[in-house]
């Protein structure tokens, strides 16, 4: 295993990079102008946070790779994002459900990271919390509005929840990287946040009149990089095409 702090920074940065890119795919094609702008702003925040996390990852690694190098010159098996982040956008409802499930975890985890023993990790978390608070507010409102909306919007949101819920569990799995972070006082055990997350999810889903699937089965393999879903590779061919076609091009 490489340096656990490097792994940790890649996990944080790859989550925001992959989800940020996914969300940016809506730019220009969202259902209404306000949503288009909101999605583009969310994507922008996430990509900004990516620069901070992957920038730190590169410093920690010390091999001269900066955030751009890490983002554009790695292949699927080197990515450390959770599987939830790479799931395709689907319809607007599925995109917003994915966002809600991710934001809920993201904000809790970032708040815990604000008291990290690592000064830069704590600073990035402090900065990100302000932005992610807005993301969660919006995704929560949208999930409630569409869940408790028309028959069609309700059905679509329930379908999105059923489709995405099996990707929730991975965010709370502890492994040896997490253990090393806990020991160094850098980050909490992901599993320690599960109860709070579940309580939050239950409250919002009740208001949205949506039913959480009973089966707690969780797909995994994203944060370790062992097994990504087929979707990430397809996404990278688009995200990285310029650097693949013209390596090290600058402008």
């Amino acid at each position: 295993m490489s340096d656990p702090l490097f792994e940790f920074c890649c996990r944080m940065g790859d989550n925001t990079l992959v989800l940020g890119h996914r969300v940016s795919e809506w730019c220009g094609v969202a259902p209404v102008l306000e949503e288009d702008i909101a999605l583009a702003n969310t994507a922008l925040d996430l990509i900004g946070q990516t620069q901070l996390w992957l920038g730190l990852a590169g410093e920690v690694e010390g091999k001269g790779r900066d955030a751009d190098k890490l983002a554009f010159h790695r292949d699927v098996w080197d990515f450390r994002n959770v599987l939830l982040a790479e799931q395709p956008n689907g319809d607007f409802g599925q995109t917003m459900m994915r966002q809600f499930l991710f934001d809920s975890w993201h904000l809790m985890y970032l708040k815990a990271l604000m008291s990290s023993s690592h000064e830069q990790v704590a600073a990035i978390a402090e900065k990100s919390v302000k932005e992610v608070t807005y993301h969660l507010e919006r995704s929560t409102d949208t999930v409630i509005g569409l869940g408790d909306g028309t028959t069609e919007s309700h059905e679509r949101m329930q379908k999105a929840l059923d489709r995405l819920y099996p990707f929730v569990g991975e965010m709370f799995i502890d492994d040896e990287v997490d253990a090393a972070m806990v020991e160094a006082g850098i980050a909490p055990d992901p599993s320690s946040l599960r109860a709070e997350y579940d309580a939050h999810l239950d409250t919002v889903l009740a208001e949205a009149t949506l039913t959480k699937p009973e089966d707690d089965f969780a797909h995994k393999g994203g944060k370790t990089g062992v097994r990504h879903t087929e979707h990430l590779g397809h996404m990278l061919t688009q995200m990285q095409w310029l650097q693949r076609a013209y390596p090290d091009a600058t402008w």
Binding site: I37, A38, Y134, R138
Partner: peptide
């Protein structure tokens, strides 16, 4: 309020 997000972040 129309949207929490606008023309700049």
């Amino acid at each position: 309020r129309i949207s929490q997000f606008g023309s700049t972040p």
